[in-house]
Amino acid sequence: MRLSHRFCLLSLVLLGVVCIGGFFVWQRARHFERLFYLTRLDPIGLNMIRNEPSSTASIVIFGDSRAATWPAPAGFSIINRGIPGHTSTQSLLRYRMHVSPLQPALVIIQVGVNDLVALPLLANDAESIVQTTIANLRAMVDLARADGNQVILTTIFPLGPNLFEQLDPGTGRIQTAIEQVNTAIRAMSAPDVIIFDSAAILADASGYVAEAYRADLLHINPKGYQVLNEALSMLLTDTQ
C-alpha cells in the first residue's frame, strides 16, 4: 500500500512539473506569436512611439524592451525610445526617425539581445548574426556621432535563466554570443563613446544575471534597474 501511495505521489509530482513546464512553454509561444504579428504589421515600430509634448530632456535612451523598461535615474529627465522585441536591425532602421529629430546631447543605447536569442534555432547562421549585431551597434553609434551626440553604449545584459532555461543547451550558446558581442562593444570606446558595462554590474560569478536582479530569461526587475541607475547617475553627472 505504501509503495502504491509513493507511486501516486510521484506521478502527481511529475504531472505537476509537466503542467507547469507546458504552461511556461505556452506562455512563451504566445509571447513570440504576438511579437511576430506586431512585426508584420509594423516592422520597425513606427506606430509604437507616440508623439510627446515638447521636452527639455537632452538625454534619450534607445533600444529594445530592456531600454523601454529602464526608468530614468532620479534627478535626470530622459526621453525613452525603447521598443520591446526589437532587434538591432530594427533599431538601426528607425534611429533617424525616433532619435535624430529629438536632437539630444546624449544617447544611451541598449539593444542586441533579441538578435542573439535566435541562435538556438539558427545555429548555422550564428556567426553571421553575431557580426550583424556588432555592425548594427557600430552603425547606430556612428549615426549618433554624426548628429553631434555623445553616446553611452551599454553592454548587453547577460541572461537570467529559470530552471527550464537552464536545461536548454541553447541558453549557453546565447550567453557565449552575448559575451562575444560585449567584447566588441567594449572595443568601441572613444572620447565621445562611453561604455557602460551593465553586464559587469548585474552578473554574478556564474556570468548570468544575479538572482536578486532577475525577472525572467531576458529581463531584470526594479532592483536590477536600481543598481544600474546608481552607476549610471554618477556617469551622467560626470558627463554634464
Rank of each mutant, 00 (worst) to 15 (best):
L116D: 13
R138H: 04
R28W: 08
F7S: 05
P161V: 03
V107R: 01
V209N: 07
S128Y: 08
C8L: 10
S54I: 15
V107D: 02
K223P: 06
T89N: 04
I79L: 15
S206T: 15
N51V: 09
P161H: 06
R34M: 06
L218T: 01
F196I: 00
R34E: 14
A177R: 05
A187V: 03
Q90K: 12
R66A: 02
F7A: 09
L106E: 05
S4P: 00
E33Y: 06
M97P: 00
S88M: 03
S189I: 03
P169M: 13
L41G: 11
V60K: 10
V111D: 15
A126K: 15
V107K: 00
F157I: 01
L232C: 11
D115P: 08
F62S: 01
Q166M: 13
V25N: 05
A135T: 07
L3F: 05
N51D: 12
G170A: 06
E211M: 06
Y37L: 13
Q103C: 00
N80P: 08
N124I: 15
I109D: 11
V13A: 14
S4D: 07
A68D: 15
A205M: 10
V193T: 09
L93V: 09
I152K: 13
V117H: 13
A139Q: 10
P158H: 01
